[in-house]
Design a protein around this nucleic acid. Structure first.
Lengths: 217, 217
DNA sequence: GCCCGCGTTTGATCTGCGTCACGGAGGGGG
DNA sequence: CCCCCTCCGTGACGCAGATCAAACGCGGGC
C-alpha cells in the first residue's frame, strides 16, 4: 500500500487527525486514468477526496465551451469539499492517479461533528486563500506575471530549485486565463532572459529567484 | 435602534440563530463614513461584521498600486470572516454605513463551538461560491459579458427590474478587472442596444432580461 | 532506424481593451 | 447663482494578448 503522506512532504502533518483517521479506516482507494473524470460539474457533493498519487485538476466549462481550471491538487491534498449542495467545478485526473475517497457521512460518524467541521474548515481555509489569490491574479496581472507566479508556486511546492510540471500548456493556460500560445511565448521569453531554464517542456529550473519573485508581484 | 434585518429583506432569516443572537447581545454598532476603512488588508482577523445600513467593499491593493475589489456586501450580509490569521483584503465603507461588530471569542463563548463553526461554514459557503464565480468571470469572460453579469447580479439582489448601483464606475471596474473607460463604454453599448436603460448614472433598469442573461453567460 | 501523432513553439495578423486626453454633467458649498 | 470639484462619457490611438496558420520536436509503435 502506497504511503499517502510521504515523510518528506510538508503537507503530511497538515490535516486534522480525525479526518485522517477516517480516511484510513473508511477510505476507498480508487484509481483514475489520465483525463478520467473523478466527479462531474453539477454532481452532488457527498464525498471527500485525498490525492495519494498523481495530480488532479478541477475545472468548469461554460455553456459555449470556454474552460476555467480552478486548481491543481497534489499528493496529500484534500479536494472535493465545495461548500454548496453540488459541485460547481468538475474534477479530472491530470495523469494516472490514485485517490482516497470517503463518504462524508462516514467521516461524520467516525469523528465528532465539531472535529469534522474544524478539519473541513482548515481545508477550506487553504481553498479560499487560493481562490482569493486567483481572483487577484486573473483580475490584475499581466500574462507575464501570471506565468511567473505560476512557476513560482510550482517551484515552492517542490521546495527545490527545479520542478516538474504535471500539466500541459493547455491546462496552464486555462488556469491562468490565457491561451496556450501566450503561455508558450511567456515561457520562451522568461527563458530568453535566463530567469528560468527548460531542459524539457515539462521540467524547469529557476535561475533568478529574485527576478521571478519581482515578476510574480 | 435601526432594525438590522428589515422584514422585507430575503436575507433576514439567513444567518444561524446562534450567531444572530451573539450579534444582538454582544455586537457593537459602528458608523463609518464614505471610504472610511473598516479593517485594513493584513490586519489580524478577530472580529465578525454584519452590515446594517450602507454597502461595504473589500479590496486588495498590490505593491505597485493595482487594486482588485473582492466583493460588495449589503445590509444583512456577514463579512470579515476570512479564513486565515489575517485579512488578505481590506474593507471600506462604500457610502456612509452602520456595521454591527462582534468579537469572535464572544461569539464562541455565547454559542457552542459547533454551532459557531456551522454558522461560519454557511457564510463561507456563500463567500466561496462568490469567489468561484469571480474566478470564472475574470478568467474567461469578455468585458461586455462581465458588465452584463454584474448588472444582472445587482438586479437580482433587488428583485425588481430596476436597481441602484451603490458604487461608482471605478469600483465596478476594479471588481470586474477592467478599466473605468471600458466599463463606461460597455454600459453605453448595452444602452444603445436597449438592453438596459440608465435614467441616471447610478440607477438602471433592465429592458431585455433574456438578452442580458444570454450575455451574462 | 523510420514513421506517425500529439504537444509545443513560432510567426503573422487581428482586435479588444488599455491608455491618454479632453469635454460635459451634476451637485455641494460659498 | 455661480464656481469648483469629482465623476462620467467619448474619441483617438497603441499595445498586449487572441487568433489563425504552420513548422518543429519528441516519444511510441513498428
Amino acid at each position: 500500500m502506497t504511503l499517502a503522506y510521504p515523510l518528506d512532504d510538508p503537507r503530511a502533518a497538515r490535516p486534522a487527525s480525525a479526518l485522517s483517521d477516517a480516511f484510513d479506516r473508511h477510505g476507498v482507494r480508487m484509481a483514475y486514468a489520465r483525463n478520467e473524470e473523478i466527479y462531474a460539474q453539477d454532481d452532488a457533493v457527498e464525498l471527500l477526496y485525498r490525492v495519494v498519487r498523481g495530480v488532479v485538476r478541477t475545472s468548469r466549462v461554460t455553456a459555449d465551451g470556454r474552460r476555467q481550471v480552478g486548481a491543481f491538487y497534489y499528493p496529500g491534498d484534500l479536494f472535493g469539499l465545495e461548500p454548496g449542495p453540488d459541485h460547481r467545478f468538475g474534477a479530472e485526473a491530470l495523469d494516472d492517479c490514485e485517490i482516497l475517497v470517503v463518504r462524508r457521512s462516514a467521516v461524520r460518524a467516525a469523528a465528532g461533528d465539531a472535529e469534522l467541521d474544524r478539519a473541513i474548515l482548515e481545508a477550506q481555509r487553504l481553498e479560499m486563500e487560493r481562490l482569493q489569490d486567483h481572483v487577484v491574479m486573473l483580475g490584475r496581472k499581466s500574462a507575464r506575471e501570471r506565468v511567473a507566479s505560476f512557476l513560482m508556486s510550482i517551484a515552492q511546492r517542490g521546495g527545490d530549485d527545479h520542478a516538474d510540471l504535471a500539466m500541459g500548456r493547455q491546462d496552464m493556460a486555462d488556469y491562468l486565463g490565457l491561451t496556450i500560445e501566450t503561455v508558450s511565448r511567456m515561457l520562451t521569453q522568461l527563458q530568453g532572459e535566463a530567469i528560468v531554464a527548460f531542459p524539457s517542456s515539462r521540467r524547469f529550473e529557476i535561475r533568478k529567484w529574485t527576478a521571478l519573485e519581482a515578476l510574480a508581484a
